[in-house]
Design a protein around this nucleic acid. Structure first.
Lengths: 235, 235
DNA sequence: CATAATTTTTAGATATATCTAAAAATTATG
DNA sequence: CATAATTTTTAGATATATCTAAAAATTATG
């Protein structure tokens, strides 16, 4: 019993982490992506919906365990090891989302919460087999890229739909707003990932767009929508 | 924030439970099945590889939360609610095992640990869709029955291979020894679930069996093996 | 049935992850 | 640059799940 728990605690220090640590890693990774640099305590606390004091404590521990580089009051960032781990979590999350949508026929607006749980299941073999079973998908149901076994993944050249001019044509390639409300709304107005979109015209007054869908249908969307959609032009 | 955590704690009390509680429920369920009656502290502690003192504490809590009926020093058993929950966990475990073997091509000796993690993912919708995706399997890769959505499942009429007489014929329907070592050994000697087995003869000296497999091959197995295998006769 | 053996419980710790309230440190602003 | 605003940290709690050591209760045995 002594031996076992000692071993377990050793393993934990070096290569494994609790759900909590995984959630911190993921949140930090996402914040780094968004801000492009160091992350601060307050933003992380907000992202995780917990209190700053808790974050301070946890960051100290994660720093000791070499998941992050932490300088008191100066913000922090992932170490190489921390980044690798975070990318692994994202790989797992996105592969499970593909499974849920393509195999179990969930809607793209229903999978996030379940994937949040599945992503914590520890088994490299499992994830690599899942990847193979799904045909090595390059993106999840929301268009977000899936890292491969080595943590490599494509940076997309997608741009916000709101950047396009009237008359241009593009492919719906991703979203920046991942809320269920937004996803359901897109379902409702008949916009799906992969669709070709032509911009009929742009209303100067409120920057709303008239879009022509491949179904010939025309829809009007607000700037809130055009700022939530990523497209690939030159298609 | 206050509201949310209050809500969460309420939910926890009534219908949800932590991984730990789920593991206790599952272990208690299995012990009840094995012993056919009340379970005691020591057996549960052994099954969970933790100390009795810890079990005493946890049982008090689980009793308050109405998962078990607990009388000090007299053993305990699951309540209706506790049983229902335990059966749900077993359903999830076994469905995931089917997924791992039939879709991801894991060996039947490789899936237990991963299913131990997957079984804790909370989503009824997920499990029912998985059930449908797998074609509503009646048994897991080890022949153990899978409860349906309502917690119903067949009691098997399988008996130990060691109960059969020379000359009888039966179908390999399940196992009582779920250890990886045993499963791998069966793989090695070429015995697989569903196989038809004919008992050539029984060695009186050590109760070892000579089995004739459908492949015409003959193998000799020890009583350790015939006591680990369940068969359905009259086939 | 008295004593020994076993089982269960109590008492007091520990680790993890969280909280609140207040203090300290840092950054922004007139 | 002094003060205000914001951010971070400290200090002291709490809940969960575990431990060890010892006491208490129960069960088995001569």
């Amino acid at each position: 019993m002594f031996c076992l728990s000692y071993l377990v605690s050793c393993l934990k220090r070096n290569s494994m982490h609790s759900f909590t640590e995984e959630n911190y890693l993921k949140a930090i990774y996402k914040l780094e992506e968004k801000t492009g640099g160091r992350v601060n305590n307050t933003d992380l606390a907000k992202a995780l919906a917990i209190h700053s004091a808790t974050v301070t404590d946890m960051l100290k521990k994660m720093s000791e365990r070499k998941w992050i580089l932490y300088e008191k009051s100066k913000g922090f960032k992932l170490t190489g090891k921390g980044r690798k781990s975070a990318v692994g979590i994202i790989r797992r999350h996105r592969l499970w989302e593909v499974f849920l949508v393509s195999k179990l026929e969930f809607g793209w607006d229903e999978v996030h919460e379940i994937a949040e749980q599945l992503e914590h299941v520890q088994s490299e073999d499992l994830i690599n087999r899942l990847d193979s079973f799904l045909g090595y998908p390059k993106a999840d149901p929301h268009g977000d890229p899936i890292p491969d076994e080595n943590g490599e993944f494509m940076k997309s050249e997608a741009v916000l739909l709101s950047k396009l001019k009237a008359g241009s044509k593009a492919r719906f390639a991703g979203i920046t707003d991942h809320s269920t409300a937004f996803l359901s709304y897109l379902d409702k107005i008949g916009l799906a990932l992969g669709d070709t979109i032509k911009i009929g015209s742009i209303e100067e007054f409120d920057q709303s767009y008239i879009l022509q869908l491949k179904s010939k249908k025309e829809i009007i969307v607000s700037s809130r929508v055009t700022n939530g959609i990523l497209v690939v032009i030159n298609y």
